[in-house]
Design a protein around this nucleic acid. Sequence first.
DNA 1: TGTCCACGTCT
DNA 2: AAGACGTGGAC
Length: 357
Amino acid sequence: MENGNNIAFCLERIDAKFRETFPRRLFEWHGENAYSYPWRQTQEPYAIVVSEFMLQQTQVKTVIPYYLKWMERFENWERLANASEGEVLKAWEGLGYYARARNLHKIAKIVFYEKQGILPSEPTELLKLPGIGLYTANAIASLAFGKKTVALDANGIRVLVRLLSIHQPVNKVRALKELSRMAMNLLSEDSDFSLFNSALMDFGRAVCKALAPKCMICPLKEICQAEQPEQLPFKPKKRIEVRKEKIAILRKEDSIWLHQADSKTGRYRGMWVFPNFDPFAMEQKTILFSLPAFLSRYKIFLEVCEAAWKQEQLFQPNLWQGEWIKKEKISFLPLPAPHRRIWMKLMTERAFSPHPG
DNA sequence: TGTCCACGTCT
DNA sequence: AAGACGTGGAC
């Protein structure tokens, strides 16, 4: 199968009618249905970068309140560059994929301290910055700098894949580039690429939806070649793996033992977490409750137990990279969602409440 | 202890 | 280059 995984092969399906109808109808639709997100009010590079980082792997509705708070707190490159990692992670708490926050922080330092506060405007330069991949580089270039470049996120990809009935998986860089080039050819030199990118994403989100596409009201219906649009794009199923982890709650007077997640695994790096139960160093008392946590393809049941150090004097605090934290201070630390949930639940139990009685 | 799904970058 | 990284929401 010579053309088995070649998307270019599918491009023959673009005829004159498609070429004419697609951009025109898309822009028409956008004219009547444009969304006005906070980051659409500006072309300021910093604001665009912040919003694009938050929007990676995260839906618009979730991002809006975080974005507004962030821009109030870290209003420009300088503020962000000079913030502490703790502050940054705290502002990101609950958004997930915390590497995004650390990378954004790194970029602020690079831009402010090494580039005189000027963000590069070329996609190839943007790609060199941490946390910026193909999509984000092109999105920033078009939205903040008016570059004539196509930015395809999952929404845009889905729309094109369905319109052209592309059955090949599109998750590889090469396939993505082919699709982008194809989209590029549908526009002319004087087209507004920034508007096109926004329109395509909005359209994918609102009409050509992943789960229940609104084909009945779709303005592109007559040029859509998908027979079963909800089956596209094709994605191999990933199987869920169930795991169990035991979390230890160690108490001393009005403090709880917390530590900063270790950097080896990368998970939750820099965030504060309750320790895993360690049978060599700890003694289990009672099992309090357990909570499910979803991490990528894992479903982890966190079994939370009350525990104590076996012989505390033998374990130097710095060996465990942790410390006793006063209960009322915990709410000021950045905790990942499952650990934040554990703490919420503990707070409702009288013995743990920072304000007992 | 509901289950499944969406959503880019890095290694 | 498969798999890690997290959360919230639809059903």
